[in-house]
Write a protein that binds this DNA or RNA. Structure first.
Length: 346
DNA sequence: AACCCGGGGTC
DNA sequence: GACCCAGGGTT
């Protein structure tokens, strides 16, 4: 049996029982694929459950406010996925009468749907012969065929896409695509793949040349930049605090946070006191300042390391409309803020 | 082509 | 702390 045929055979015996494998409805497949971008099944599963429960159809999702979608997405990261998900739901209801595009080319036009996701939906829902290339596929193919081309180069993207498209079972594209991804996720894993029990170990080039740990080849990414965040946790005499919506282009767009003072380095209480004194939310008011976390909280993102201090600012009254501290759980916040809210007793 | 966008995990 | 994982969008 050839590589592709055997993969499908392996899949039929080894696939995990996952909720999105019970359906071919484009809405559910689309939803699961967006959630699973850059995300492992274990982390995405509870979000899939809550989204399908709260928004059983694309019409329900299209009617929601973006803030509710972001709140449900809270903690999953890469929040542009949630904003695009919501925008695309609106688009499908308004412009496409609630019907998803039924082919790769048209699926690709949807916001938040790139080559991988368009191929996944087209093959799973509509049996189109469109090969998926996700991180699992890169790993399985680079090892089995001993390919050294960096997977995160444009040359690599073309090369692996073409190879996958050549290998895909033309009669069972959905099964092949899911089989190769499942095999990568559960057997041909990034670290410590189980080569001894691997059904392909006779012909796998990486295994036979002892190169399992060198493949796939990846170009190193730039080192993360350090940033210094000082969040002002206002507490007023009448039990209110301040949350602000993050605008603009950077991280956590449209999520909420405490008023932020970014500095070039870690600052002590006296330095921060001067900055708070000049702050628009204080304007000469008297205040009491204390550092909540003795040790700086380091929050690591792919491209930034955030050295974070939470400063409690006690004031008599707020200069702006604050929120009652008991309502703080209604706002979508980054996990960094969410963890603080959990440990701080409002 | 280079860079941005979260959060979770291992060693 | 250093390193690994992983799609789409923007510049």
């Amino acid at each position: 049996m050839g590589f592709s045929k055997y993969l499908i055979h392996w899949y039929s015996n080894n696939k995990r029982d996952l909720p999105w494998r019970q359906t071919k409805a484009p809405y559910y497949i689309w939803l699961s694929e967006i959630i699973l971008q850059q995300t492992q099944v274990k982390q995405g599963l509870p979000y899939y459950e809550s989204f399908t429960e709260k928004f059983p159809t694309v019409f329900d999702l299209s009617k929601a406010d973006e803030s509710d979608v972001l709140k449900l997405w809270q903690g999953l990261g890469y929040y542009s996925r949630a904003r695009n998900l919501h925008a695309t739901a609106k688009h499908i209801v308004k412009e496409l009468k609630g019907e998803f595009p039924n082919n790769y080319k048209d699926l690709l036009k949807l916001k938040g749907v790139g080559d991988y996701t368009a191929s996944a939906i087209a093959s799973i829902c509509f049996n189109e012969v469109a090969a998926v290339v996700d991180g699992n596929v890169y790993r399985v193919l680079s090892r089995y065929f001993g390919i050294n081309t960096p997977i995160n180069s444009s040359k690599g993207a073309k090369e692996f896409k073409a190879l996958a498209q050549e290998l895909i079972d033309k009669k069972k594209p959905a099964e092949f695509n899911q089989a190769i991804m499942e095999f990568g996720a559960t057997h041909c894993t990034p670290q410590k793949p189980d080569c001894n029990t691997c059904p392909f170990n006779k012909s796998c080039i990486a295994f036979n040349k002892n190169k399992i740990n060198e493949l796939p080849v990846k170009i190193k990414s730039a080192k993360a930049k350090k940033k210094y965040f000082n969040f002002l946790v206002f507490i007023s005499g009448d039990g209110k605090t301040i949350l602000e919506k993050r605008e603009g282009k950077g991280i956590w767009q449209n999520l909420y946070q405490f008023p932020l003072i970014e500095t070039n380095t870690n600052v002590d209480v006296n330095t921060l006191k001067k900055l708070v004194k000049e702050h628009d939310l204080i304007k000469g008011m008297s205040f009491q300042l204390s550092l909540y976390n003795k040790d700086v909280v380091v929050h690591k993102l792919s491209h930034q390391h955030l050295y974070t201090k939470f400063w409690v600012v006690n004031v008599n009254k707020l200069l702006v409309n604050g929120i009652s501290t008991q309502d703080i759980h209604n706002y979508a916040v980054p996990i960094l803020i969410g963890n603080f809210i959990e440990t701080f007793n409002f």
